[in-house]
Design a binder for these strands. Structure first.
Length: 208
DNA sequence: CGTTCGATGCACT
DNA sequence: GTGCATCGAACGT
């Protein structure tokens, strides 16, 4: 399990260090987990793409709270997206989890993804089950009820399994129309579960 | 391979 | 009323 201090740091460092950690959701239906292979940083009110850009509101309150909590919200009226809140309390920032490599509970993920879906979706490869921020929350059964769960201790948590630190690359964030110039998306170079086109991944530049 | 577009709920102006 | 931190189907190349 990661400590509160892990999240109480510069958001870009937290995003980098979350790659290779394991997101777990343990529910009555069973435990599902996956290795984080893609994430994006959203940092402060000056970041036009961050939900804190308009200042404090009812919806974005979790961003201003203590680090290490989950910030879950509904987007496009259809998908839930999950973030890990970062930086000190009062400093609104978070890391959006964008893709996982499925680890435990793969059949449970498949069942959740299949609900109300077409045959094509029911027959997805394992690495497609948690590919994309809306897909991974569906596979893990995350919805608004998990907003503000404590990622350091609750049934929705992020664990350190001591896996080797993956090589990563940085790119522009995906799916936004403002603040597009910052390269605040980070992803594992060698993972087949990263979202976006394969071509984009193979044209990786800045490693570290 | 690529692009376009509808679904759908709610916070915010 | 407007605009999303998306997804997948449909259709073009």
């Amino acid at each position: 399990m990661l400590s509160r201090d892990f999240y109480n740091r510069a958001t870009l460092k937290v995003a980098r260090d979350l790659i290779g950690k394991v997101l777990v959701h343990d529910t009555r239906a069973g435990l599902a987990s996956g290795i984080i292979v893609e994430a994006e940083a959203y940092i402060g009110e000056s970041d036009k793409a961050c939900h804190a850009a308009p200042g404090p509101t009812a919806r974005n309150a979790p961003l201003y709270g203590p680090p290490g909590m989950a910030y879950v919200y509904l987007n496009y009226g259809i998908h839930y997206l999950v973030n890990a809140v970062t930086e000190a309390e009062g400093w609104p920032a978070a890391v959006l989890i964008r893709a996982l490599e499925p680890r435990d509970g793969i059949e449970l993920m498949r069942r959740r993804r299949a609900a109300g879906s077409t045959r094509r979706v029911r027959e997805l490869a394992v690495n497609d089950l948690c590919r994309g921020p809306g897909n991974l929350t569906k596979a893990l059964g995350i919805h608004l009820r998990q907003n503000l769960k404590d990622l350091t201790s609750s049934e929705l948590r992020i664990e350190d399994h001591g896996l080797p630190k993956p090589s990563v690359a940085w790119s522009r964030r995906i799916g936004i129309n403002v603040a597009v110039e910052q390269e605040w998306r980070v992803y594992a170079l060698d993972s087949d579960a990263v979202s976006g086109s394969r071509r984009q991944a193979s044209m990786a530049n800045a490693q570290c």
